[in-house]
Design a protein around this nucleic acid. Structure first.
Lengths: 231, 231
DNA sequence: ACAGGAAAAATGATCGATTATTTTAAGCCC
DNA sequence: GGGCTTAAAATAATCGATCATTTTTCCTGT
């Protein structure tokens, strides 16, 4: 058995960061919710400093917000931001997918075919009755979208798409928690994949943009209604 | 005298963050340099925790890198990243400036005219002989570039352009510290401004991209030569 | 000279008591 | 009831001692 020289022990701060990040993205911790440091240190059986370190990281990533001497809150959601975010996703992912269609080879094709297949085969919910989110679906969903732009040749663009995806994930979680579910067929992801593999850039972009806009329209019924109740 | 209700006391962590951020961007702390927590806490007359918090923030922003149990280093530079970054800047700023030309009104025009003027009127160096950077120039430079895309309608895009600008700033600092200086005329920024105000989108994009590529070519002579010496 | 192991030194990370700041509650006055 | 002031309570932030991990140094054997 070979020891991986690069294998590291995870610090308490990193562990807390990862858990909080997950909970913010999946809606467990709702937008604008106060992130109380003492409460968190108790629930994570940790001192105050690792909690603060984790929160600083989340804040710098835009998943939480921090104000000096006023601590941390989960980043709020808003309709204007949703619209902005959706527009930015359309713009940036368009570059990513066009460049990938231009530059991507057989390996990229196989990546997106597999990612699309896995996404379609992964149930969106653990239990259909109460809409318990399946974490595997969230992973497969992001993997699919990132795979579409993965051959664009720019890590900066890939990172930007990833950020935008995560920001949108918070909105998807808001909708899910509010009981809104998507009724469109799974063909959507498949259609995008086909257009990409067939090198039809205009069609892929159009389908992808429509996909983002549809998500936004679905979500904004909740943000419009629900955001008014948020502090 | 009216007290600003929103005026906050700055925390030690925020103060250290701001200072370290400035020093990383202006090249005072070179790429890959170790950020030793005890040394920093002494030089900032602070405890260890605020230093760690500041470093976590910088790390999440990509200005430093962190590995569990191995502390923090200034983010390294590399030729591949410079190329990627430059390409990403071209792509993203193209969207930003095209949308701004489409949507921006008289106010936007005035913003970029003023920003361009101020940039041209601000000396690049405090002392020409030893190339002491003028911090005012750095501010005016970023203000100019951000103003070009400021009417695009998307805070997410504006934020992305800002991130990319800062990342590029580290490369400009590497070049400056290495004694490389730009010899092109200041007309460049003026020409971009004119094209934008005249609503010549294609020309503005072409000039802007050429501007970014010229910066990259200048910088990469140093990164190519100097990066080999970095750990 | 090189490799491996052990010990020492350096550094990373955490703890929880303490200090600093903000928020809330209570009391008073108009 | 509203506004203001003060005190108490809650929470944010910091400190530096201590524990944990990594790196460096030293020694031994081949």
């Amino acid at each position: 058995m070979i020891n991986d020289v690069n294998e590291q022990k995870q610090t308490m701060a990193s562990s807390i960061y990862a858990q909080l990040r997950k909970e913010i993205l999946d809606g467990t911790r709702p937008p604008s919710a106060k992130l109380n440091i003492r409460d968190l240190s108790e629930s994570f059986s940790s001192g105050l400093s690792p909690v603060r370190e984790a929160l600083n990281r989340l804040s710098s990533e835009g998943l939480a917000q921090q104000a000096d001497n006023r601590g941390f809150n989960v980043q709020p959601v808003s309709l204007p931001e949703l619209i902005d975010l959706t527009q930015a996703r359309c713009w940036v992912n368009e570059i990513g997918i066009r460049e990938s269609i231009k530059k991507g080879g057989a390996e990229w094709e196989e990546t997106i075919i597999l990612a699309s297949h896995r996404l379609i085969r992964t149930p969106r919910f653990l239990a259909e009755e109460d809409k318990l989110a399946n974490p595997d679906w969230a992973v497969a969903h992001k993997t699919f979208h990132q795979s579409l732009i993965s051959a664009c040749g720019s890590n900066w663009m890939i990172d930007t798409c990833s950020r935008l995806f995560d920001a949108a994930e918070r909105y998807r979680s808001v909708a899910r928690v509010a009981g809104i579910s998507r009724t469109d067929p799974s063909d959507e992801h498949q259609d995008i994949t086909s257009a990409a593999v067939d090198r039809k850039a205009d069609e892929a972009v159009e389908l992808l943009n429509a996909h983002f806009q549809r998500t936004a329209q679905l979500v904004q019924t909740v943000v419009d209604d629900g955001a008014g109740d948020l502090p």
